[in-house]
């Protein structure tokens, strides 16, 4: 799973996701991409599950690019622990995505396989998405 190699601080504030994406909104590598329509935290597990679903449907042909990186540590308190006594331990890593962000790109496969692979990948993600393709494809 994706996670930072090293970080300056172990824990981060929760934060809020406002507005729409201004960067990473156009296809940069592949011919087809999966764009999010909602703001959300995408966990490293969800990214990995989507990547596996996409590559498996593509039968290991073509190429996949992951355009998001889970760099936000999300902490969680253990079960049956009273509130207070400080912030919980880091549990998992997540990427914050804003609407319009291209999360995955693929290339080297035909349009039918690309659309189906991205549809299967999108089913692993907690956001509504749409498949975008390069103009002229």
């Amino acid at each position: 799973m994706l996670q930072p190699k090293r970080t300056k601080f172990r824990k981060q504030h929760k934060g809020r996701i406002h507005g729409v994406a201004t960067r990473g909104v156009t296809l940069a590598f592949g011919s087809y991409g999966l764009k999010t329509l909602e703001p959300e935290r995408i966990t490293a597990r969800q990214i990995e599950a989507a990547r596996r679903a996409i590559t498996r449907h593509m039968k290991r042909a073509g190429r996949v690019w992951i355009r998001i990186f889970p760099d936000v540590p999300v902490s969680k308190k253990p079960t049956e622990v009273r509130m207070g006594k400080g912030k919980g331990a880091p549990e998992y890593w997540a990427a914050r995505v804003k609407p319009g962000r291209i999360m995955f790109e693929i290339d080297g496969v035909g349009p039918e396989i690309a659309h189906e692979a991205l549809r299967l990948g999108a089913a692993k993600l907690p956001v509504r998405t749409k498949v975008v393709s390069r103009i002229g494809e």
């Binding site: 799973m1 996670q3 930072p4 190699k5 090293r6 970080t7 300056k8 601080f9 172990r10 490293a44 597990r45 540590p73 880091p90 549990e91 998992y92």
Partner: peptide, 8 residues
């Protein structure tokens, strides 16, 4: 999963 990377 869940492994915390080395701190800077």
């Amino acid at each position: 999963p869940g492994e915390v990377p080395a701190m800077h």
